[in-house]
Computed example of a mutant assay.
Amino acid sequence: MSRSPLRLITLISFFGIIVLLKLFTNISWNIIVSIAIIMIFLEVFTFAFETEGHDLLKIFVILTSFVGLPIFVLLYLGIFNSFSNPLISLLFAVFIVIFGAMAIFTIVKLNYVEIEYDWIDEK
Protein backbone atom coordinates (compact mmCIF):
# COMPACT_ATOMS: atom_id res chain seq x y z
CA MET A 1 0.00 0.00 0.00
CA SER A 2 3.02 2.28 0.11
CA ARG A 3 2.90 3.04 -3.61
CA SER A 4 -0.74 2.27 -4.19
CA PRO A 5 -3.45 4.86 -4.90
CA LEU A 6 -5.36 3.18 -2.07
CA ARG A 7 -3.08 5.04 0.34
CA LEU A 8 -4.49 8.38 -0.76
CA ILE A 9 -8.03 7.03 -0.64
CA THR A 10 -7.40 5.78 2.89
CA LEU A 11 -6.14 9.16 4.06
CA ILE A 12 -9.10 10.94 2.46
CA SER A 13 -11.53 8.52 4.10
CA PHE A 14 -9.84 9.00 7.48
CA PHE A 15 -10.22 12.76 7.11
CA GLY A 16 -13.84 12.31 5.98
CA ILE A 17 -14.66 10.16 8.99
CA ILE A 18 -13.25 12.78 11.36
CA VAL A 19 -15.18 15.59 9.67
CA LEU A 20 -18.42 13.58 9.69
CA LEU A 21 -17.97 12.70 13.36
CA LYS A 22 -17.44 16.36 14.23
CA LEU A 23 -20.37 17.63 12.16
CA PHE A 24 -23.06 15.05 12.83
CA THR A 25 -22.44 13.65 16.30
CA ASN A 26 -22.24 14.90 19.85
CA ILE A 27 -19.06 12.96 20.51
CA SER A 28 -16.52 14.74 22.69
CA TRP A 29 -13.54 16.30 20.94
CA ASN A 30 -11.21 14.08 23.01
CA ILE A 31 -12.81 10.95 21.57
CA ILE A 32 -12.55 12.29 18.02
CA VAL A 33 -8.86 13.06 18.54
CA SER A 34 -8.34 9.56 19.97
CA ILE A 35 -9.98 8.03 16.90
CA ALA A 36 -7.76 10.19 14.67
CA ILE A 37 -4.63 9.05 16.54
CA ILE A 38 -5.64 5.40 16.09
CA MET A 39 -6.26 6.01 12.38
CA ILE A 40 -2.82 7.59 12.00
CA PHE A 41 -1.22 4.59 13.69
CA LEU A 42 -3.13 2.24 11.38
CA GLU A 43 -1.71 4.13 8.42
CA VAL A 44 1.82 4.07 9.87
CA PHE A 45 1.45 0.38 10.72
CA THR A 46 0.49 -0.56 7.16
CA PHE A 47 3.19 1.71 5.71
CA ALA A 48 5.93 0.22 7.89
CA PHE A 49 5.09 -3.31 6.85
CA GLU A 50 4.49 -2.67 3.17
CA THR A 51 7.80 -0.92 2.67
CA GLU A 52 11.13 -2.55 3.20
CA GLY A 53 11.93 -0.61 6.33
CA HIS A 54 14.36 -1.38 9.07
CA ASP A 55 13.50 -4.21 11.43
CA LEU A 56 13.91 -1.87 14.40
CA LEU A 57 11.27 0.42 12.88
CA LYS A 58 8.89 -2.50 12.58
CA ILE A 59 9.53 -3.56 16.17
CA PHE A 60 9.00 0.00 17.39
CA VAL A 61 5.75 0.35 15.45
CA ILE A 62 4.45 -2.99 16.77
CA LEU A 63 5.30 -2.17 20.39
CA THR A 64 3.87 1.32 20.10
CA SER A 65 0.68 0.10 18.42
CA PHE A 66 -0.11 -2.71 20.82
CA VAL A 67 1.27 -1.39 24.12
CA GLY A 68 1.97 2.34 23.97
CA LEU A 69 -0.99 3.53 21.95
CA PRO A 70 -3.73 1.92 24.10
CA ILE A 71 -2.19 3.30 27.29
CA PHE A 72 -1.76 6.75 25.73
CA VAL A 73 -5.35 6.85 24.47
CA LEU A 74 -6.72 5.75 27.85
CA LEU A 75 -4.59 8.36 29.61
CA TYR A 76 -5.75 11.01 27.12
CA LEU A 77 -9.40 10.12 27.68
CA GLY A 78 -8.94 10.16 31.45
CA ILE A 79 -9.98 6.56 32.03
CA PHE A 80 -7.21 6.02 34.58
CA ASN A 81 -8.41 9.03 36.57
CA SER A 82 -11.87 7.52 36.99
CA PHE A 83 -10.61 4.83 39.38
CA SER A 84 -10.70 5.73 43.06
CA ASN A 85 -7.59 3.74 43.93
CA PRO A 86 -4.33 4.40 42.04
CA LEU A 87 -3.38 0.74 42.39
CA ILE A 88 -6.41 -0.22 40.31
CA SER A 89 -5.19 2.15 37.58
CA LEU A 90 -1.75 0.55 37.74
CA LEU A 91 -3.28 -2.93 37.59
CA PHE A 92 -5.38 -1.86 34.59
CA ALA A 93 -2.23 -0.59 32.83
CA VAL A 94 -0.47 -3.90 33.58
CA PHE A 95 -3.39 -5.80 32.03
CA ILE A 96 -3.16 -3.61 28.94
CA VAL A 97 0.56 -4.40 28.64
CA ILE A 98 -0.16 -8.13 29.10
CA PHE A 99 -2.89 -8.09 26.44
CA GLY A 100 -0.59 -6.14 24.09
CA ALA A 101 2.17 -8.69 24.65
CA MET A 102 -0.28 -11.52 23.96
CA ALA A 103 -1.35 -9.81 20.72
CA ILE A 104 2.28 -9.43 19.64
CA PHE A 105 2.97 -13.06 20.58
CA THR A 106 -0.05 -14.16 18.51
CA ILE A 107 1.15 -12.18 15.50
CA VAL A 108 4.61 -13.72 15.78
CA LYS A 109 3.21 -17.25 16.08
CA LEU A 110 0.84 -16.72 13.15
CA ASN A 111 3.83 -15.77 11.05
CA TYR A 112 5.08 -19.36 11.36
CA VAL A 113 1.87 -20.75 9.89
CA GLU A 114 2.22 -20.90 6.15
CA ILE A 115 -0.26 -22.46 3.80
CA GLU A 116 1.21 -23.34 0.48
CA TYR A 117 -1.12 -24.17 -2.35
CA ASP A 118 0.33 -25.31 -5.61
CA TRP A 119 -2.39 -24.73 -8.17
CA ILE A 120 -0.18 -25.93 -11.03
CA ASP A 121 -0.45 -29.55 -9.78
CA GLU A 122 -4.25 -29.28 -9.83
CA LYS A 123 -4.45 -28.81 -13.62
Score class of each variant (00 low, 15 high):
residue 83 F to A: 07
residue 19 V to P: 00
residue 106 T to E: 12
residue 114 E to K: 15
residue 99 F to D: 07
residue 96 I to Y: 01
residue 5 P to T: 14
residue 39 M to R: 00
residue 4 S to N: 15
residue 29 W to R: 02
residue 59 I to S: 11
residue 83 F to V: 04
residue 58 K to P: 06
residue 37 I to H: 02
residue 53 G to S: 15
residue 97 V to G: 00
residue 30 N to E: 10
residue 112 Y to Q: 13
residue 122 E to F: 15
residue 49 F to V: 03
residue 8 L to V: 13
residue 77 L to H: 09
residue 120 I to L: 11
residue 12 I to V: 06
residue 76 Y to W: 13
residue 30 N to S: 08
residue 74 L to H: 09
residue 40 I to F: 10
residue 15 F to L: 07
residue 63 L to R: 01
residue 8 L to G: 11
residue 99 F to E: 07
residue 37 I to T: 05
residue 115 I to F: 14
residue 96 I to D: 01
residue 25 T to S: 12
residue 123 K to S: 12
residue 6 L to R: 07
residue 55 D to Q: 11
residue 114 E to C: 06
residue 28 S to R: 04
residue 120 I to T: 14
residue 42 L to N: 09
residue 93 A to L: 07
residue 122 E to K: 15
residue 86 P to Y: 11
residue 86 P to D: 10
residue 50 E to Y: 11
residue 20 L to Q: 07
residue 83 F to W: 04
residue 1 M to Y: 10
residue 1 M to S: 13
residue 69 L to Q: 03
residue 110 L to S: 06
residue 121 D to G: 04
residue 26 N to V: 03
residue 37 I to F: 08
residue 91 L to V: 04
residue 110 L to F: 10
residue 103 A to L: 10
residue 108 V to H: 05
residue 39 M to W: 03
residue 109 K to F: 05
residue 114 E to S: 13
residue 99 F to P: 00
residue 118 D to S: 12
residue 31 I to G: 02
residue 16 G to I: 00
residue 52 E to C: 06
residue 112 Y to V: 07
residue 30 N to K: 11
residue 84 S to W: 04
residue 19 V to I: 11
residue 24 F to P: 04
residue 84 S to T: 08
residue 27 I to Q: 06
residue 87 L to H: 06
residue 53 G to P: 05
residue 57 L to I: 15
residue 27 I to Y: 07
residue 43 E to R: 05
residue 34 S to T: 10
residue 105 F to H: 09
residue 67 V to T: 04
residue 47 F to E: 15
residue 68 G to P: 05
residue 13 S to L: 07
residue 94 V to P: 00
residue 33 V to I: 12
residue 2 S to E: 13
residue 85 N to A: 09
residue 60 F to E: 08
residue 84 S to I: 03
residue 54 H to R: 14
residue 120 I to F: 11
residue 74 L to N: 13
residue 70 P to W: 04
residue 22 K to G: 00
residue 9 I to C: 01
residue 115 I to T: 12
residue 63 L to S: 03
residue 9 I to F: 02
residue 86 P to E: 11
residue 46 T to K: 08
residue 54 H to K: 13
residue 115 I to D: 06
